[in-house]
């Protein structure tokens, strides 16, 4: 059994439909076995077409910043150079999901809401979403553990952006509230 139930969501960019209609819950699970039953039968992120996302969130939290669990929060963002899609993307996404369902963040685990992987022509992104952007101790602990669990080089930095900041600016201008 997992500590909580999780839900996998899939987003496919169909421009003729509203954003919310393009986002669909695939299924929920609450055991390790059911996680693998799902994972072993869906496409890897590197095989999705550009514009698609997967999101894995605690059951009851929708993968959008407007959800009450997300709106005061933010995300640790890992931006991948284009050439890394075929080398690292799938491994990094799997390791992200294993951190989530395995509750790898210890006492700050409840502050972790979920994660999103975006497949994009200009570079894929993986983001870990947390509940409270102003809880510095929590955000920094989660960021350090996450960076280490992904095996990112000490020379690499990842930034944390509050959703409130990202929502009002294009992503390239959203400031980093924290970095590790």
């Amino acid at each position: 059994p997992l500590m909580t139930s999780w839900a996998l969501w899939f987003f496919k960019n169909e421009r003729s439909r509203a954003w919310r209609e393009n986002l669909q819950m695939v299924t929920r699970f609450d055991t390790v076995e059911d996680f693998w039953a799902l994972y072993n039968n869906i496409k890897l992120p590197s095989k999705l077409s550009p514009g698609c996302d997967y999101a894995l969130f605690r059951d009851g939290i929708e993968p959008m910043w407007e959800d009450s669990s997300n709106k005061r929060g933010g995300r640790w963002l890992v931006s991948l150079a284009k050439q890394l899609r075929h080398l690292d993307l799938d491994r990094l996404w799997l390791d992200t999901m294993l951190c989530l369902i395995g509750e790898g963040f210890g006492d700050y685990g409840p502050d972790v809401c979920g994660a999103v992987v975006n497949i994009r022509t200009k570079g894929d992104k993986i983001a870990l979403w947390t509940r409270e952007a102003d809880s510095q101790a929590s955000v920094m602990h989660i960021g350090r553990v996450y960076k280490e669990r992904l095996g990112l080089s000490m020379k690499a930095t990842i930034g944390y952006q509050a959703h409130a900041d990202t929502a009002t600016k294009s992503n390239s201008l959203a400031r980093n509230k924290f970095v590790v």
Partner: peptide
């Protein structure tokens, strides 16, 4: 228990046959 599982523990389940 706290149900904190590390990566290697979780990976061990990936290809186990389901029990019926």
């Amino acid at each position: 228990g706290k149900k904190q599982y590390d990566r290697e523990f979780l990976l061990d389940f990936q290809f186990l046959p389901a029990c019926v």
